[in-house]
Design a protein around this nucleic acid. Structure first.
Length: 500
RNA sequence: GCACCCGUAGCUCAGUUGGCAGAGCAGGUGACUCUUAAUCACAAGGUCGAAGGUUCGAGUCCUUCCGGGUGUACCA
């Protein structure tokens, strides 16, 4: 025997068997990849209105998810976008040829069937098939999830596979679909909320010659014809402000932003935000609007009280509004509102908190807040009184306190969801602030902002007082779907290349 | 970035002290006309994530690398 037997893995064997089946199916005169099918009803309609459908004819279509053969008659489960229904298929009803076809079908195939709605002896609503059609042949075996008494067995649970092959996750883990339907509902409700407030939805460039509006490292790309470097936007702030300067009163954009930095449970390199800007209002007005927005989304999804990551979050009450320094007083047990950098250094030492002596006042406050305060902010809380150094696009406090700006962030369940300020409209001040960012950049802060001359020029023409807000939509979606990883609210989270 | 955990058949998982790589499901063949994690019988299916090393002998121990998860840090 000189013939070398090819060693096949199970997978290769199954795929070649199914390709062989395609040949057989064609020999039976059947197209294994048909063009259309006239569906009269969805599975759930039938299951929910059995009385109406009993003994009536229906035509349904979907994917075969289980097959139980018993000789001359068989049962199968077929799943469509609404749910799973049982088929009863007997040789007597569909004829010798079609039964032969049925017998070579596999789990994963799409079928269409016309038949009579009935109940089996055990009471299960079932379509007794009279005409069976193969709509699309599967050749790669679908993972099999079994279910008994509501308990799932052998679930498709490998997170890596679920993220890389989201289509399988959607087929095999029904809850996943629900999360993404909710995602779409939240986006739609967001759009509706701002449309009804008289905001104009706009689109601004994703490819930007200069990036800005946030502190982050960008993705860089290159345009061949223009011969220039472009950046994927890290925020759309500076463009939306240009539109306010241009005379729009209220604009919003639901935008994808791109930030070239670390990834974790709440950071994906591309993510969704909504930013909105309104002329003639300040950050206090925006606090009201943001509070209304969150209550609106909660209501849309059914409840003003939710549970998230082990915490009960209550949207009924007015959100707490509190100065960062009051929070420091509470959790640091020191009033640091009059402290400068010189006083903060011994405080850090006393609290055993590691710091970089090169930090400016704002960076100290920011770091201390992150370490000692954030973890306590469970219920919705507007935090105000941010230092100027970490807020280069926000107006100085109107009461003359030069260290602080009119800015708030909304925290829920220890996470930041919203960032907002009374937008800085003074072009001279704005230039100064961006220049001091540039200085930080020169000192090695890769996330400091860039001086955008075009934006500064726009400001010089005059910008009305404006309130602006950015909301991290993926996080909002996580909150209202109960997911604690951003990967579970993105259809296709970013992954490293799989090795072969 | 650091720490810990995981990677075995298409899927879900066993694999003891280092001693012949296993099961269920799916797939194949056969039986079976109300099954439903259908059942029964038979046969098949493996680069144990990759590469090195220790050893008479490595799925198992060591090193490096790849991928994933969790925590932590950076992060708006």
């Amino acid at each position: 025997m000189s013939n070398i037997e090819e060693k096949h893995s199970t997978l290769e064997t199954i795929i070649s068997q199914r390709k062989e089946k395609i040949k057989q199916i064609k020999e039976l005169g059947v197209n294994p990849f048909s063009y259309n099918y006239s569906v009269t009803h969805k599975n759930n309609e039938i299951l929910e209105n059995y009385d109406k459908f009993e003994n009536k004819e229906v035509a349904i279509a979907g994917r075969l998810m289980a097959i139980r053969k018993m000789g001359k008659a068989s049962f199968a489960n077929v799943t469509d976008s609404t749910g799973k229904i049982q088929l009863y298929i007997s040789k007597k009803d569909i004829g010798e040829d079609k039964y032969k076809l049925f017998k070579i079908l596999d789990i994963g195939d799409f079928v269409g069937c016309k038949g009579i709605v009935m109940k089996t002896r055990t009471g299960e609503i079932t379509v007794k098939v009279l005409e069976l059609e193969l709509l699309s042949k599967n050749i790669r075996p679908l993972p099999i999830v079994k279910e008994k008494d509501g308990v799932l067995h052998d679930t498709f649970s490998d997170k890596e596979q679920r993220y890389r092959k989201r289509y399988l996750d959607l087929i095999l883990n029904p809850d996943v679909k629900g999360t993404f339907v909710k995602r779409t509902k939240i986006i739609a409700a967001t759009r509706k909320f701002f449309d009804e407030k008289g905001y104009l939805e706009v689109e601004t460039p994703i490819l930007q010659p200069i990036y800005g509006g946030a502190n982050a490292r960008p993705f860089e790309t290159y345009h061949n014809t223009l011969g220039m470097n472009l950046f994927l936007r890290i925020a759309d702030e500076l463009y939306l402000k240009r539109l306010i300067i241009g005379g729009f009163d209220k604009v919003y954009e639901i935008c994808k932003n791109f930030r070239n930095e670390g990834m974790d449970k709440s950071h994906n390199p591309e993510f969704s935000m909504i930013e909105f800007y309104e002329a003639y209002v300040d950050f206090n007005y925006m606090m009201d609007l943001v509070e209304e927005y969150f209550k609106n989304i909660a209501k849309t999804l059914g409840s003003l009280e939710i549970e998230y990551d082990g915490n009960k979050i209550d949207f009924n009450k007015p959100f707490q509004r509190i100065s960062m320094f009051k929070l420091f007083e509470k959790y640091l047990e020191v009033d640091i509102s009059d402290y400068g950098k010189e006083e903060l250094i011994p405080l850090c030492e006393e609290k055993n908190f590691e710091f970089d002596p090169k930090w400016n006042y704002g960076q100290f406050i920011d770091a201390l807040f992150g370490e000692f305060v954030e973890k306590h902010l469970i219920q919705p809380t507007f935090v105000t009184d941010f230092p100027k150094e970490i807020s280069p696009l926000a107006k100085t406090r109107r009461d003359g306190n030069e260290k602080l700006v009119e800015r708030f962030e909304l925290f829920i369940g220890k996470e930041e969801y919203v960032n907002s300020f009374s937008e800085l409209t003074d072009p001279i001040d704005q230039r100064k602030r961006l220049e001091s960012q540039a200085k930080l950049r020169d000192q090695g802060d890769k996330e400091a902002q860039i001086v955008d001359e075009d934006f500064l020029q726009a400001l010089e023409y005059g910008m009305p007082p404006t309130g602006g807000v950015g909301i991290g939509l993926d996080r909002v979606i996580m909150l209202f779907t109960g997911q604690t990883s951003i990967k579970d609210v993105l259809f296709f989270p970013q992954m490293k290349k799989e090795n072969e």
